[in-house]
Amino acid sequence: MIKKTFKIPDMTCSNCAMKLESLEDSLDGVKEINASYHRLEMVIEYDETRLTDDQIVAAVKKKGYRAEIA
């Protein structure tokens, strides 16, 4: 398991954070996601053998946001 922080510059409200955290339920290999609108970032703890950074970025994009590794 590793923990990585992604910058999410497009978040506009705290609902966006809740929406990103819902990736916990849909992305395989994710243990926990903590997203913060205040800091415009998402901290994700995941199994790097089952999930790649690109897959995370793509999943975030599907939710309507850009993600960049911090």
């Binding site: 705290s14 809740m18 205040h38």
Partner: peptide, 27 residues
């Protein structure tokens, strides 16, 4: 001014997410 947006505690958002379909019911 982003701090004027209240971020509900994680356990609440998780509870809402898992008990309700959407996340827009609490506010």
């Amino acid at each position: 001014f982003r701090y004027f947006s209240i971020e509900p505690p994680k356990f609440i958002t998780r509870y809402i997410r898992r008990t309700a379909k959407g996340t827009d019911t609490a506010t």
